[in-house]
Nucleic acid binder design. Structure first.
Length: 239
DNA sequence: TACGCGTGGCAGTATGGAGT
DNA sequence: ACTCCATACTGCCACGCGTA
């Protein structure tokens, strides 16, 4: 198992601690510790777990229970978010729940992009200006970079320029790239009561200024950034 | 047919002891 | 002090089986 797998706790210093490791009495236990000592609140009053070897089925059972519990919560949340009656969807499969969740999160992101553009149409222009500066920086870097074949250089710059053109010459949302395949031509997609803009195939957050918290990676304040997020162009290399 | 369960295997990590 | 190795523990996955 990879040590850097997110959300896992096996890399915790406690993961491999022997059973005799003394616990700090008042220290709050982590989830891993709870699992290790078998003392989840709902399990109070039960017998302590036997040795590690014999507890393996219990651990596996507990793991499955965690998965199912989270899936059940996810189902409730997603049905609530989509305003669907849960009683009519009691037969949802796990795969359905996950698919609905993925679609919901994708749509949510587009809703927020739409909202941000509606609130301040200038953000697309700022993004474009930032992208432009990025392109110029790459161009400067490549010019001073030995060993980069000319065709590679020109292909890279051509690709970036094409990306820039794809953003459109103006700030109007109507100039955005073609809609996602699922969207019918001429019929704006509506989600949660809002008309959506076409999906942008952006590998990074498109509208960083003003994006609702939690929708993109939390970025620490960068003293070099200057006007970053305050009306100036977005400069990814300053992050 | 989807799901739950028990089980074995594998891989990653932590730990302690022995050897240098 | 440092390295190496055996061991313990944990999480994930696949498989077979039973059930609703």
């Amino acid at each position: 198992m990879p040590a850097d797998t997110p959300g896992k706790s096996s890399a915790s210093p406690l993961a491999g601690a022997p059973a005799s490791t003394s616990q700090i009495p008042d220290k709050p236990r982590s989830a891993a510790e709870h699992r290790k000592v078998g003392s989840w609140p709902e399990e109070r009053g039960t017998q302590p777990l036997p040795g590690p070897q014999s507890s393996k089925p219990v651990m596996e059972k507990r793991r499955r229970a965690r998965i199912n519990e989270s899936l059940a919560q996810l189902k409730t949340l997603i049905l609530d978010a989509l305003r669907k009656e849960s009683s009519r969807h009691s037969k949802l499969e796990k795969a359905d729940i996950l698919e609905m969740t993925v679609r919901h999160l994708q749509n949510l992101r587009r809703v927020h992009v739409t909202a941000a553009l509606s609130a301040d149409p200038a953000v697309l222009g700022k993004y474009r200006a930032g992208f432009n500066e990025c392109l110029a920086e790459v161009s400067r870097f490549l010019a001073g970079c030995e060993g980069v074949p000319a065709d590679v250089r020109s292909r890279l710059l051509g690709h970036l320029a094409a990306c820039l053109r794809q953003l459109g010459p103006s700030r109007r949302p109507a100039s955005l790239p073609p809609a996602a395949p699922a969207v019918e031509a001429g019929a704006p997609e509506v989600y949660a009561g809002r008309a959506l803009l076409p999906a942008l195939d952006c590998p990074f957050p498109l509208l960083r200024p003003g994006l609702p918290p939690g929708l993109t990676r939390a970025l620490p304040a960068d003293p070099r950034a200057g006007p970053q997020g305050q009306g100036g162009p977005w400069r990814p290399w300053l992050r």
